[in-house]
């Protein structure tokens, strides 16, 4: 049985229409017109226990709105949601004990108090037993290195430390489900890596179901097997990440170091996209010409000193889907 079930949910907001100009503003003082904005349109998905799912889409696609509906802060306009057997917005507080939430953009810790005080407060809020609290704190201290800043007020923490504290705080009550809304935003490479390792570990060892929204495609590539892609409030893709790569990743790049960087290449199915000193980037479609074939053709006219074949990063795939739409790409590739 899926741990999260979302069926045909919609969320509309009524937004006050702003009139322009002086007369318009006067008019809107007396009579306001509202326009309906559809933030989420007919989205359905189900997630099994222990899955790690990337929930991605461009800004304003409806990611946070969906997460807020799953946490119970927002009521869907229509459709049904079940999280661990509970309808979140009907039993908001009960749902709260089943989920952990991290919003990368804001903290749930008490700003002016030493970090440890926030943990103690959360222990009371979620009625975590002393033994469990102690055990969890030991584990998190070890993996996340909380020791170094437990007695520092939250406002003095670095962003990386704050995020580590925040994620530990969200897991203090052992929720079976974890929502991460941009957990690596603004972090440096090392901090990002630490964060990812930790998420992987709790998923593997505690079977915590993780839903992750992010703009960092490396997060998705390293953490998730499955991704749900939404755009303009609609689901455009739901499935394996490797399948997306398979579908859209036919364009590859061959990077060759040749003796003369000015050399011309006249090969069907491949074109030069970039040159830098003696290095040349050639883009080719795997269906039209294979890599070995291409290399063979180049060696006929040039001597190759070094070469690599670059697979497309998921990022460039996603950005193409954002720009061109999913359906069109399906046809054109």
């Amino acid at each position: 049985m899926p741990i999260i079930e979302v069926n045909n949910i919609n969320k509309d907001f009524m937004v006050a229409k702003r009139e322009t100009g002086f007369l318009g503003s006067v008019r809107s003082l007396f009579k306001r017109e509202f326009i309906k904005k559809e933030a989420v349109k007919d989205i359905s998905f189900s997630i099994e226990k222990g899955e790690m799912v990337g929930y991605i889409g461009p800004n304003g696609a409806g990611k946070s709105t969906t997460i807020k509906m799953l946490t119970g802060i927002l009521v869907p306009s229509s459709g049904t949601i079940k999280v661990n057997g509970i309808v979140p917005y009907e039993q908001r507080q009960k749902n709260a004990s089943n989920i952990g939430v991290v919003f990368g953009q804001r903290t749930q810790l008490w700003w002016d108090l030493p970090t440890i005080e926030s943990f103690e407060l959360l222990k009371e809020i979620y009625q975590v037993s002393d033994a469990r609290y102690k055990q969890n704190m030991e584990i998190y201290q070890e993996i996340l290195g909380l020791d170094e800043f437990l007695n520092t007020p939250v406002r003095q923490l670095s962003l990386g430390q704050r995020m580590r504290a925040d994620i530990a705080a969200s897991l203090l009550h052992d929720p079976p489900i974890l929502f991460l809304d941009e957990p690596t935003i603004g972090l440096d490479v090392v901090a990002k890596e630490k964060m990812r390792t930790f998420i992987q570990e709790i998923n593997r060892e505690r079977k915590v179901t993780v839903i992750l929204t992010t703009h960092d495609m490396e997060d998705i590539e390293k953490l998730c097997n499955r991704m749900v892609l939404i755009d303009h409030g609609q689901k455009v893709y739901d499935g394996d990440i490797s399948a997306v790569k398979e579908r859209f990743g036919k364009i590859r790049t061959l990077v060759v170091d040749v003796e003369n960087g000015e050399a011309t290449f006249d090969i069907v199915g491949a074109e030069v996209v970039k040159r830098e000193a003696n290095r040349v980037w050639l883009q080719f479609n795997r269906d039209e010409i294979s890599a070995s074939e291409l290399i063979g053709r180049i060696t006929q006219t040039h001597s190759i000193k070094d070469l690599t074949v670059e697979e497309p990063a998921i990022e460039s795939i996603i950005s193409r889907i954002y720009q061109e739409g999913f359906e069109e790409k399906l046809v054109s590739v």
């Binding site: 946490t71 908001r92 709260a96 004990s97 804001r106 809020i125 979620y126």
Partner: peptide
């Protein structure tokens, strides 16, 4: 205004 209160809605208190 910042929405901090709205977030407290999902806490059990």
């Amino acid at each position: 205004r910042t929405g901090d209160i709205a977030l407290e809605l999902m806490r059990p208190f």
